[in-house]
């Protein structure tokens, strides 16, 4: 499966992960090109339906990146996001899709290096898991 190029969608909070992606860019830090970013106004805006539909549409992995716990611009958005991620992970398990294909990360807007590290780590994990069972269906 060395030629497997996963499709990964990262839902990134405007106040942290999305800004961190910009920092990574400014610093010319390379990160896995398989990751496609979607900006959201707060990680707490993530809708479980959107996560599930992302898998339905063929994503091999999805992660939500929000602010460090305690630092959410909207106080508890990142805590809610984590709970929603846990909820969708349970559903993925019921459907026979490895819950590890979905993850939640926390970082600050200044952590460009950490952003790249998360993107690379998650991409490696998905490469090991192989294509989603929905791929090509």
């Amino acid at each position: 499966m060395s030629d497997f190029k996963p499709k990964i969608v990262a839902f990134c909070c405007y106040y942290c992960a999305y800004a961190a992606a910009d920092v990574a860019g400014s610093l010319r830090v390379q990160y896995a090109p398989e990751v496609r970013l979607v900006e959201i106004p707060c990680s707490g805006r993530i809708d479980p339906v959107v996560i599930l539909k992302t898998f339905e549409e063929g994503a091999d992995g999805v992660y939500v990146a929000g602010c460090l716990e305690g630092d959410c611009h909207f106080l508890k958005g990142n805590i809610r996001a984590r709970q929603r991620v846990n909820y969708v992970q349970k559903i993925l398990g019921e459907l026979g899709i490895d819950p590890e294909r979905l993850a939640m990360y926390n970082l600050s807007g200044a952590q460009g290096g950490r952003f790249a590290q998360i993107a690379n780590e998650f991409t490696e994990k998905i490469k090991k898991l192989g294509p989603s069972p929905l791929r090509g269906r």
């Binding site: 809708d47 479980p48 339906v49 599930l52 339905e56 559903i91 026979g96």
Partner: peptide, 19 residues
């Protein structure tokens, strides 16, 4: 509303996995 959308997506996914 959300649970209805979740169930519909889940059922579509299961069916998709059956081809």
């Amino acid at each position: 509303e959300t649970e209805a959308e979740m169930l519909a997506a889940s059922l579509r996914i299961l069916r998709k996995m059956e081809g």
